[in-house]
């Protein structure tokens, strides 16, 4: 019985939250890695793209709610999502036209692009604050729980409860669907293959008659979509605060680098590696230990690292990968 309790506790406090978080990171890292593969720079504005995409979606959600529209058991934000993605895509394309295209024509060094993305980050950050303010916002409606801790305890007779929130299930389902669609697009369609070709070998892609501007546009649209979806799912799961999205930049970059920058499969794996490490390292294992070894009374919480240091986990993973395998676990672009 105690082993079952321990398993349920691990499931409840580690596996479920880490899976949802991992899916959100994976979507974010996919956007970063795609931009890296095609435009060849690390986009520091990605966190704030997520933030503004989410902010726009929240505004559309409020609008729908004010019309009395809801999505039954699902959050209304899901209905607003396509509108949010479209608006973010337009914004991001405008940014490319106004900022990045100039440096592309100049064939500027990657670090100049990074610098420009810092400027874009500032602007997007300010726009988000202007749009929705700096306060924390919750915008999830619909069904709260798929499995309720109390009901689970009554049903199973265990002392440990298991809670599964609707937003967590939603996160995973949406992420799987999005990733499937993305890979189908990249591997099966002409445009998707053209994107991969461009990422592989820009000059040869030009010789083959692939239009670089079209590829770049497509990339931005997809990245805007991924960023908005990742941001909205994160916001639904936790809450929306613009600054949190800036802070997600580090785990997202870590995920993308761990998987190998430019490698989409790697980005997904990297997202889950970072998320599981982060949750596992910051989870107090005392409870689980209590079930498994009731006689042992450890003094501390058996927490390897306080939750306030969760970013240190991404950082350590990042450092280890840079030290031992700078191209990432799944072989990304060369160093």
């Amino acid at each position: 019985m105690d082993i079952l309790n321990a398993l349920v506790a691990i499931l409840n406090y580690v596996v479920i939250p880490a899976t949802a978080y991992g899916a959100q990171l994976a979507l974010g890292a996919l956007g970063v890695t795609l931009i890296y593969g095609i435009l060849r720079f690390s986009n520091f504005a990605h966190g704030d793209t997520m933030a503004i995409g989410t902010a726009i979606t929240i505004l559309f959600t409020w609008m729908l709610q004010s019309f009395g529209i809801s999505f039954g058991p699902l959050p209304t934000a899901l209905l607003a999502l396509p509108l949010g993605i479209a608006a973010t895509a337009v914004l991001v394309l405008a940014t490319d036209r106004a900022v990045y295209r100039f440096y592309r024509v100049q064939r500027a060094a990657p670090i100049i692009f990074v610098m420009a993305s810092v400027g874009v980050m500032f602007v997007l950050n300010g726009l988000t604050r202007l749009l929705i303010g700096v306060d924390e916002r919750r915008f999830d409606d619909g069904t709260r729980f798929v499995i309720n801790a109390r009901e689970f305890r009554e049903w199973s007779g265990l002392s440990e409860g298991l809670a599964l929130r609707g937003t967590q299930v939603l996160t995973v389902v949406v992420a799987v669907a999005v990733v499937w669609a993305l890979f189908w697009f990249l591997n099966r369609t002409r445009s998707g293959k053209a994107m991969r070709a461009y990422s592989d070998n820009e000059d040869l892609a030009l010789l083959s008659g692939i239009d670089p501007e079209r590829v770049v546009r497509l990339t931005w649209i997809i990245a805007a979509g991924l960023a908005t979806i990742a941001g909205v799912l994160y916001g639904l799961d936790k809450s929306f605060r613009p600054f949190n999205y800036f802070q997600m930049l580090l785990p997202i970059f870590a995920a993308a680098i761990v998987g190998g920058l430019g490698n989409p499969v790697g980005a997904i794996a990297g997202g889950f590696i970072v998320a599981f490490s982060e949750v596992a390292v910051t989870y107090p294992w005392r409870k689980v230990a209590g079930y498994l070894a009731p006689d042992w009374q450890p003094a501390g919480l058996l927490q390897l690292l306080g939750t306030e240091y969760k970013f240190a986990v991404s950082f350590v993973i990042l450092i280890v990968v840079l030290l031992f395998r700078p191209t990432g676990l799944f072989r990304g672009k060369s160093v």
């Binding site: 720079f41 990074v114 680098i257 950082f315």
Partner: peptide, 12 residues
């Protein structure tokens, strides 16, 4: 390593 890696590592 690549120039962006220093940026990301220092961010961390």
């Amino acid at each position: 390593l690549r120039s962006d890696y220093l940026a990301i590592a220092t961010l961390g």
